[in-house]
Design a protein around this nucleic acid. Structure first.
Length: 121
DNA sequence: AGCGTGACGAGTA
DNA sequence: ATACTCGCCACGC
């Protein structure tokens, strides 16, 4: 039998690990695709992106975003709703970009996978 | 086999 | 700030 004998109800192991990381991201925080890949020490941002595109619906997908903090195209409003509800740091463009959606403030929202005990107000 | 595409990222102009 | 290039890797044609 070939080793590619995967059951339809089973996810590839890599996908399972990516989803596992996505699930442990605390509310109000985000990780980039590249961060997840780095944390796993395997694959790259594009691989993580592929997994999220295929199976991300089962996890808090809005907490895994691009490095530039742009909201997921096609789900901007839904993502924004989650961010506002979780208190995720956002950068309101303000200033003449009213039709422009806010982006996640990566400097404050980025989570490296390690809880820090700093008095972050 | 090549080639284009993508829920990417960093660098440069 | 935007636009473009290159590197990256998996997938589909």
């Amino acid at each position: 039998m070939s080793e590619e004998n995967l059951a339809a109800d089973a996810l590839p192991e890599y996908a399972e690990r990516v989803l596992d990381v996505a699930e442990r991201i605390p509310p109000g925080r985000v990780m980039t695709y590249g961060d997840v890949a780095e944390w796993l020490e395997d694959g790259g941002p594009r691989q993580v992106g592929r997994v999220m595109a295929l199976y991300g619906g089962a996890v808090p997908w809005w907490r895994v975003i691009r490095a530039d903090g742009v909201l997921l195209p096609g789900h901007e409003l839904e993502a924004l709703g989650h961010y506002r509800a979780e208190g995720t740091p956002l950068r309101e463009a303000g200033r003449a970009s009213e039709g422009h959606l806010p982006r996640v403030d990566m400097r404050r929202a980025r989570w490296d996978g390690v809880e820090r005990a700093e008095g972050h107000v």
